[in-house]
Design a protein around this nucleic acid. Structure first.
Length: 472
DNA sequence: TCTGGGGTCCTCAATCTG
DNA sequence: TCTGCAGATTGAGGACCC
């Protein structure tokens, strides 16, 4: 999907269409998650500190992410992909590999192109959004093709042309080559994919180590036999928080670690998992990051056990100077049931996790949050008189709302007191109005009824971007 | 006013185990 | 019983991805 989060926001808010939109954390330490192509013109990009983005594009709309909405739209796209093939491998909420050959949706370049074109039409009809498709004989090439296709395009790499196409590309084009590896290669005089092929496998292994060296050399020769894997097991579950202001108080650090442990366990239990290794992550005032871990005798999902382990790990960390981030994770995952056996054998109490609905982390230098209603930027609201709208901004006891829906013209702006009884948070509306199913109708493009909002959504599902025309 | 959150995989050193 | 070795496991950190 193209600029996914920002595109969803533009689709649901007519007044933002064609405008610079930046989605991400709005706190003092937030970063950009995604921005619209209009914002990219100003130099804004993903992972950029929000403050820098605001300097570059002061007039852009700044919104907090609405993951539930994105997840629901993501699931709609995933359903379309699964209609093409049983082999769909989600990479994230907005990208997935599809083995078209395994699904019988394509058997050569031309049929793949047709399938890709139809997919893009269906995605548009069902979600109202644009998606790009990359078609090639392997995952790596399909991914590169989909990047080339963005925004709103389709690129097919014809079989036999792969190496010629890759040769002049920069090493950073290859998946797995980030800033560090890119620098490393550049210092060795290797800047293009062609240079990697020329350097030879031994040299690559010498420079980057066994695993990375072999893999990169193969990719440079356009060799990638990795299959599309539909089911991936979760390897770890973790939660972390960055604090607006560094925490210096050791007691408070301990309290936060306890909270994070509880949240982590809630997520773990939500997935029906337990784990053996508890990991504590601490980012200090100077951005140096350290992790401490402890492996238990058996897997657990007991909040008390995880909390105590995290506290022990914290004892071994010097937090003088303050911490900006804390995290707690569990890895070495096992089936939920194994934990019970262990807990019983050890005679441990199984404590319930306090149902604290993911409270805001404690911010230093800030009084306890007033019992004031919160109106996050971009979230939907409903007013008894003016109808559906979204929060454009809030502060100083007032909240500004723009009244419009995904299907309306750009709407009017009005300001209310934050405690106005006529104003209430609302569920997002579907981006495409629901079309009633007529008898005998079955095509996906005409029967989808907008996002499934409300209720629990499974984590880890995700949509589409690059498709794979299976090799062979 | 720099630098989120949730993951995966790899490497290396130290330690454990058979 | 002691020693040496190989392989597995553990713990920490780094790089990368979206």
């Amino acid at each position: 999907m193209d600029a996914f989060f920002a595109s969803v926001e533009q689709a649901s808010k007519p007044s933002l269409r064609g405008k610079a939109v930046v989605v991400g954390g709005l706190g003092p330490r937030g970063v950009v998650a995604t921005c619209s192509y209009e914002a990219r013109v100003f130099g804004v990009h993903s992972a950029m500190p929000m403050g820098q983005a605001r300097r570059l594009a002061p007039n852009a709309a700044y919104l907090v992410p609405r993951f539930e909405l994105y997840r629901s739209i993501s699931e709609q796209v995933m359903r379309l992909l699964r209609g093409l093939s049983p082999l769909v491998e989600p990479l994230s909420l907005d990208e997935a590999f599809v083995d078209l050959e395994a699904g019988g949706a394509a058997w050569d370049a031309e049929s793949a192109r047709l399938a890709g074109t139809k997919l893009r039409t269906d995605i548009r009809a069902v979600t109202g959004l644009t998606g790009s498709v990359g078609l090639a004989a392997s995952k790596m090439l399909a991914k590169i093709a989909s990047e080339e296709a963005k925004p709103d395009g389709l690129v097919l790499i014809p079989p036999g042309t792969e190496r010629t196409m890759l040769e002049p590309m920069t090493v950073r084009t290859l998946p797995g080559v980030g800033p560090a590896t890119g620098d490393h290669l550049r210092r060795a005089g290797i800047t293009t994919v062609g240079d990697i092929a020329e350097a030879g496998e031994d040299e690559l292994v010498r420079l980057l180590g066994k695993a990375h060296g072999h893999a990169l050399y193969a990719m440079a020769l356009a060799l990638d036999e990795r299959p599309v894997v539909a089911e991936r097991e979760t390897k770890s579950v973790s939660v972390e928080d960055t604090y607006d202001v560094d925490i210096h108080d050791r007691v408070r650090v301990g309290v936060e670690v306890g909270r994070l442990a509880d949240r982590c366990v809630r997520r773990l239990r939500g997935s029906g998992l337990s784990g053996r290794t508890i990991v504590l992550k601490v980012r200090r005032y100077d951005f140096s990051t350290l992790t401490r871990s402890e492996t238990l005798r058996g897997p657990t999902d007991d909040p008390g056990v995880v909390r105590e382990a995290a506290a022990r790990l914290l004892d071994s960390v010097d937090t003088t100077g303050g911490v900006r981030l804390l995290g707690v994770g569990v890895s070495g995952l096992a089936d939920y049931t194994q934990e019970d056996l262990f807990a019983q054998a050890a005679g441990e109490r199984v404590q319930e996790v306090a149902e604290e609905p993911d409270a805001e982390p404690v911010r230093e230098d800030r009084p306890a949050p007033a019992p004031e209603r919160r109106w996050p930027s971009g979230h939907d609201v409903r007013h008894v008189e003016y109808g559906h709208g979204w929060v454009q901004g809030s502060g100083l006891g007032r909240v500004t709302v723009r009244f419009e829906t995904p299907y309306s013209e750009p709407g009017r702006v009005r300001t209310f007191p934050v405690d106005d009884p006529h104003l209430a948070p609302a569920e997002p509306l579907p981006l495409v109005p629901a079309v009633p199913r007529r008898p005998g109708e079955g095509g996906p493009a005409t029967t989808e009824a907008g996002p499934d909002l409300g209720g629990e959504t499974d984590a880890g599902t995700g949509p589409a971007g690059s498709a794979r025309q299976a090799s062979g």
